[in-house]
């Protein structure tokens, strides 16, 4: 099963790589048709969606249990959500950041192939499991594009934080929604909507980082380089919460860390 998954992931990475090259060429020669970019991005997304659908059926459970499985969702959501936000905002500037995020996270799965099995622990058998994790991953995808873009603009000394900020305004509500769904589920499963588990505390720290960011937005827009640096830094907190927490001493007492197999 994991071999088939590996080849489908490799196919999607290839599509997005070529789509990325097409996007760069489109920037260099504006006015040319971007059909190649569109088709290959779409094909890569189709491969990821097919892979997730197939895994869901073959594993007989939502493919959201292991870190590797969440990376497939993250990669797909980065490109799909990035395209939707780009369409809504009428910009082409999101093409490269979203493709880079998608390629990066799927490539992690190619380098560290995962074992896939059918087991699902009893606590995850809840109608809130899928919405909670998917909404979280969607917010991470949007915030990831925002963070990646902010970092790029920071390095390139192109200090315009407008688009990264707009993405934060889409990502933070999703993050909040994920947090609320998690609290409601935890109450249903364990009796405590907030138990100060290390992973929960990281989720709070992530949320605080972004809430503080948007409350300081007005002032930060006047200091664009600082703003870009902070937006990129906030995404590091997301990564801590998502998987770097697995490498901290606190993980020993957490009930929420993803299985790493």
């Amino acid at each position: 099963m994991s071999t088939v998954a590996w080849w489908m992931e490799a196919g999607a990475v290839l599509c997005w790589l070529v789509a990325g090259i097409a996007a760069v060429r489109a920037i260099r020669r504006p006015g040319r048709s971007d059909g190649c970019y569109r088709w290959l991005t779409g094909l890569g997304c189709l491969l990821v969606v097919t892979l997730l659908g197939w895994l869901w059926l073959a594993l007989d459970r939502p493919p959201l249990r292991t870190l590797g499985e969440t990376r497939i969702w993250y990669a797909g959501l980065s490109v799909v959500a990035g395209s939707l936000v780009a369409w809504r905002l009428g910009t082409t500037s999101l093409r490269l950041p979203m493709l880079i995020m998608g390629i990066l996270f799927l490539s992690l799965n190619l380098v560290f192939p995962q074992a896939l099995d059918k087991t699902l622990m009893p606590a995850l058998r809840s109608p809130l499991f899928v919405p909670h994790v998917v909404v979280y991953l969607l917010s991470y995808a949007v915030l990831g594009i925002s963070g990646g873009m902010a970092l790029w603009r920071f390095i390139r000394r192109h200090p315009d934080p407008d688009l990264p900020f707009r993405l934060v305004h889409a990502g933070l509500p999703l993050l909040t929604l994920g947090l609320c769904l998690g609290a409601i589920w935890a109450k249903e499963a364990w009796g405590h909507y907030w138990a100060w588990d290390p992973k929960e505390t990281w989720a709070l720290l992530t949320w605080i980082a972004y809430v503080a960011l948007i409350h300081g937005e007005r002032g930060l827009r006047e200091r664009p380089r600082l703003a870009l640096g902070i937006i990129a830094g906030c995404f590091v907190v997301v990564l801590m919460c998502w998987f770097l927490v697995n490498h901290l001493p606190s993980t020993a007492v957490s009930v929420h860390t993803y299985t790493r197999e």
Partner: peptide
């Protein structure tokens, strides 16, 4: 908010 973060971070890092 940053003060809440500054006071509760040990739970996120240490057992």
């Amino acid at each position: 908010l940053l003060s809440v973060a500054a006071t509760c971070w040990p739970i996120a890092v240490f057992p």
